[in-house]
């Protein structure tokens, strides 16, 4: 178990370093940020001062080396645009993105498992077929357009919900969250639904396939033969078995949700790291882009660990095999 742990950690560190190299070199090629940052009217001396302040006069390998050394100490550079440490910028906006992604994940799992169970138990019924056709639509609706249409309907036409922004937040354990204010929730609901729809379709498919397979198993029939109510059979015996693939896949999809939040945050002007990334790309704010990627890779690695852990909690057979190993 320990060996496995150390190996995973080593791999993760390697991925981080390789990503850092690739990104740094790649971003270096983007263009000269000086052109954006310094007004054309500025004289040569002023330009020179800025370049030196940003460390852009040093050769590439030296910039890279400095970056790596600093990164080890938690310093991912200073934003060209904001003048603040890039890591701090990211960390300030991270809670908003995580909140959005987690709420979307909860929506996707709850709705997806429920609908998938239904479609799996009654695959030939009208409802079952409608759910499956609906899931194709869910796969096909582009995230950003769905967001726009939700804004059009709920914010512009009906005027029930705000079109963008984050709304009121309260501080909980030092993290600002909009989950506990009415205004915050009303701002959260549209982006969360937008972000959740694609994953909901994915969960529906997984849950349906799982249900159809599990429903044929002897242990389900045996559970019925014990005289259990059908709700107990479905929500305990079937559900617990289909949650295994759902948790594995959806856990890994949390990473892609954080990535897709880039789109949703842009549409809804949600002040998270995704919007920060787009702004930074447009402004050629190199350190922030690099810091964003480092942070995302780090989060992905964390998620992978968490999924492994959850998986062994759900499936007792996994625990045994690991104990043996």
């Amino acid at each position: 178990m320990l060996v496995y742990f150390i190996r995973r950690l080593g791999q993760a560190a390697l991925v981080l370093v390789v990503m850092a190299l690739l990104v740094f070199v790649g971003i270096y090629a983007i263009g000269n940020p000086v052109d954006v940052l310094i007004s054309p009217e500025a004289d040569l001396a002023e330009q020179q001062a800025t370049i030196e302040r940003l460390g852009l006069d040093k050769p590439l390998w030296e910039q890279l080396w400095l970056f790596l050394v600093n990164a080890l100490g938690g310093d991912l550079g200073r934003s060209f645009v904001h003048g603040e440490p890039a890591l701090q910028l990211i960390l300030e906006r991270l809670p908003a993105t995580l909140e959005l992604a987690l709420v979307a994940l909860v929506i996707a799992v709850t709705a997806g498992v429920f609908l998938g169970l239904w479609a799996g138990l009654k695959p030939d019924s009208l409802t079952g077929r409608s759910i499956m056709t609906g899931s194709i639509l869910g796969f096909s609706l582009p995230n950003f357009w769905l967001g726009l249409m939700l804004i059009l309907v709920f914010a512009v036409s009906l005027q029930w919900l705000p079109a963008g922004g984050r709304g009121d937040t309260v501080s909980l354990l030092g993290i600002r969250t909009s989950l506990f204010t009415l205004d915050g929730l009303s701002h959260l609901i549209l982006p969360a639904v937008t972000l959740a729809l694609y994953k909901t379709s994915l969960v529906i498919r997984l849950a349906r396939a799982g249900t159809r397979e599990v429903a044929l198993q002897d242990y389900v029939k045996f559970a019925r033969a014990k005289g259990l109510s059908s709700s107990r059979v479905i929500y305990v015996h079937v559900l617990k078995n289909i949650m295994i693939p759902v948790v594995t896949v959806i856990g890994l999809e949390l990473g892609s949700m954080i990535a897709f939040a880039v789109v949703t945050e842009t549409v809804f002007a949600w002040p998270g790291i995704g919007k920060l990334l787009i702004d930074s790309i447009v402004n050629l704010d190199r350190p922030v882009v690099v810091a964003y990627l480092m942070m995302t890779v780090f989060i992905f690695i964390l998620i992978n660990f968490a999924v492994d852990l959850l998986y062994s909690l759900l499936d007792p057979r996994v625990r045994l095999s690991e104990a043996k190993a």
């Binding site: 790649g26 971003i27 892609s256 880039v262 789109v263 990334l277 882009v289």
Partner: peptide, 20 residues
């Protein structure tokens, strides 16, 4: 494996940030 562990949208975004 490494490539597929990153969402397509993110990779494409970074690539286009580099390419223009």
């Amino acid at each position: 494996d490494i490539q597929l562990s990153f969402p397509a949208i993110l990779v494409a975004l970074i690539l286009l940030a580099i390419f223009g």
